[in-house]
Structure formats: structure tokens, C-alpha cells
Amino acid sequence: MRITFYAPFKPLGHARPSGDLAIAASIAAYLERHGHVVSRAGGTRMRWIYWRPWRWPAILREYRRAVREHLRRPADLWLTYHAYYKAPDLLGPSVCRRTGVPYVIFQGIFSTKRRRRIQTLPGYLLNRKALTSASHLFANRREDLRNLRRLVAEDRLTYIRPGIEPSLFGFNAEARAGLRREWAVGEAPVVLSAAMFRPGVKSEGLAWVIRSCGRLNRAGIPLLLAIAGDGRERARLVRLGERHLPRRVRFVGKLSRENMHRFYSAGDVFAFPGIRESLGMVYLESQSCGLPVVAFDNGGVPEVVANGETGLLTPPFDGPAFDRALAGLILDSGLRGTMGANARSHIRRSHDVEKNYAGMEAILSELVTGKQA
């Protein structure tokens, strides 16, 4: 198939890493590995585009370019990744209506509460129009699937389990030994955390882990905390670390996704609460490397972490419960080992994109075959 791939929220190749970008890249890479020709549409971020009129001329140029390309060399299908009220798809529905190409959305998100505020009403209406015009929609969160059922017929919806390529996130003994020497950690358990240091729930989640580890350390539990990431909140988080975990926290900076498996290999537990986390690729990646997880039981986290089997999920914002879960894994090496092995198997069994995206590929092929019939 010839597939036009479009990511209105964060285009492929964007400089700022995120879980959304990783998922979009994994879908495109999967399709290319399986022999499909994937061409990228657009390049302008659509975030709050309806309140940024200075960007509208660029969107119009991208629309005209996409129409010309489709009329000259038609694609078999248009696939948009992640359409919601903040970043509605303004290209796909219009281009497909003009050219007769089937239109599909992966991770379409629908929420009626967005129609209640003037700030979000335009995005709600534009996104609703895109969702209802799609031939098929895929959801990688069950909550999103439930919400889409309020708008779209069941036969146009499919749930796809979130996944990664487990071969990219395997345990590396050499990296473990090298990083632990560099951190001068000795035999003490290492707690890992990772997120972009941006204002809001990401930095607050890291602050939560720092405070929790600080309480455990003051209680006499030996540990080292290592945090991967960078951003505007770095100075504040470093000060917080110095106050709560003096000499027991390492900030390792922003790491490429290709090197994250080395970071995960050096740890014993991965801790990040995931405040209202939609999914959390770090949970998939860290489990794939054999780490048990400690996080909040909220958002999309329970869809990727098996509570009591591959990690421990606690009530959101329950500090004592989070501390107990983290302490239990730090102090019990046997439990860590069992949950870590379970985590590695869990990812390969349930969250391998080679298995999970096969269903998506089959439906896309059916849509193209039906159009050509």
C-alpha cells in the first residue's frame, strides 16, 4: 500500500521527544518494515491552530500540496496519528474528500466537555468533524475507545494494545556495570525515573519521586535515584534533589531513545507516578529491560503495567502508599527479580508492536481492497 502518514499534534522528526512522537514513529516504521510506502504529509504543528491565524497560510499551502501530490500519484490510504481538540486534523478529511482516498485515524480522542468552553469549542467541533468522517478509528487506550463509542459506530472502531519493539529495549550488562561505576553506587539499589523537565505533571511527577526517595533514605533505606531528562524545570528539580537526597541523586540529562535501554539496565526499580498519564512509553520500555514499576493507578498506566505482577500501582497522591510500594521493592531483591522477569515477559507477550500492529495492518488492507473493488 501507498500510505500518507500525518501527525498533526507533533510531526515526525520533531526535535522534542515524547511518547506521542515515539508511537507515531513506531507506526510508520512498522508499515515500512512490512513493505508499504509511507509518505509524510504536513509539517506544521496543529496545536491550538484555530487560535493562531498567522499559521493558517502555511496550513493552506500544505493542503494544496497534499491535494496536488494525491492527484498526481494517488495514495491508497491516509493515516492520521493522534487527533484531538488541541490539535485537530484539518488536512486529512479535506484532502481525502477531494481525492477519494480512505481516511483513517489512529488514536482519535473525543471529549464532550471541550464544547463547554469558548477556548476549546473550535477544537472540539473541528475534531468531531474529523472523527465522524473517518472510515476507521484505532484507539490504544480503552478509555478513548469508550468515548469514541458515543460518536462512532462499533464496526468502525478497533482497540490496539500499545507497544514497543522489545528488541530495542533489552537488558545490557555492560551498560549496567559501567553506569553504576560512574554513579559510585556500590551495591545499593538504584531507583530510576525519566521524563521531560517541563512545567506541569511531568516535573511534578519527578518531584514526587524525589520526595519519596528522600523520605525512604532518611528512614535508613539505602538507595540512589537516577533521573533521565532535561528541560525548563531542571534547576528547580536539582535544588529539590539536593535538599531531599543530598549526594544520593544523579541527573543524567536527556538521552536519545536509542540509549535509554542502557539507562534502564543500570537500575533496579523504575518509579514515576504518571499523574493523569495517558499511556507512558517509559513504562513499556523499562519493563522490557526487566524493571518492576511503581506508579499511580490512574490514566492509561494500568493498561501497560500489571499491578501486583510487573509492578505496584498505588492510589493517586497517596504518599504513604507510594513510599511503601517503593520501599517494598527496594528491600526485597527476590520480589524485584520476580516482578522484573514478569515485566520482561509481559512486554514480549502483550506489548510487541510486531504482534499488535498486525491487526491494524489487516484492517487498512481491507479498507484499500474495498475501495478498489
Rank of each mutant, 00 (worst) to 15 (best):
4 T>G: 10
4 T>Y: 13
6 Y>R: 07
9 F>P: 00
13 G>D: 05
18 S>I: 02
25 A>C: 06
25 A>I: 04
27 I>M: 08
29 A>I: 05
32 E>D: 11
35 G>P: 03
42 G>H: 01
44 T>K: 15
47 R>C: 05
48 W>E: 09
51 W>S: 11
56 W>Y: 01
57 P>Y: 02
68 R>P: 02
70 H>Y: 05
72 R>L: 10
78 W>A: 04
87 A>Q: 09
90 L>P: 05
91 L>H: 09
91 L>T: 09
95 V>P: 11
96 C>S: 10
103 Y>R: 05
107 Q>N: 15
107 Q>L: 08
108 G>K: 15
115 R>D: 14
121 L>N: 01
127 N>I: 02
131 L>G: 07
131 L>Y: 07
133 S>T: 12
135 S>Y: 09
136 H>V: 11
143 E>H: 14
143 E>K: 06
153 A>G: 07
183 W>E: 02
185 V>K: 01
186 G>R: 02
190 V>L: 02
195 A>C: 12
196 M>E: 06
199 P>D: 02
199 P>F: 00
208 W>T: 10
210 I>G: 04
214 G>Q: 03
215 R>F: 05
218 R>T: 14
219 A>W: 07
220 G>Q: 01
222 P>C: 13
233 E>Y: 04
234 R>Q: 10
243 R>E: 15
245 L>R: 04
248 R>L: 13
249 V>E: 08
250 R>C: 08
253 G>T: 04
266 A>R: 10
266 A>L: 03
271 A>M: 13
271 A>I: 14
271 A>H: 09
278 S>W: 05
282 V>E: 07
297 D>I: 05
300 G>I: 05
300 G>C: 03
301 V>S: 04
302 P>E: 12
303 E>R: 00
305 V>H: 06
309 E>N: 12
314 T>G: 07
317 F>I: 06
324 R>I: 07
325 A>K: 08
332 D>T: 08
334 G>Y: 00
335 L>H: 08
335 L>C: 06
337 G>N: 14
338 T>A: 06
339 M>E: 06
349 R>Q: 13
351 H>V: 07
351 H>S: 08
358 A>E: 15
362 A>H: 10
363 I>Q: 14
365 S>Q: 15
368 V>F: 06
369 T>Y: 13
372 Q>V: 15
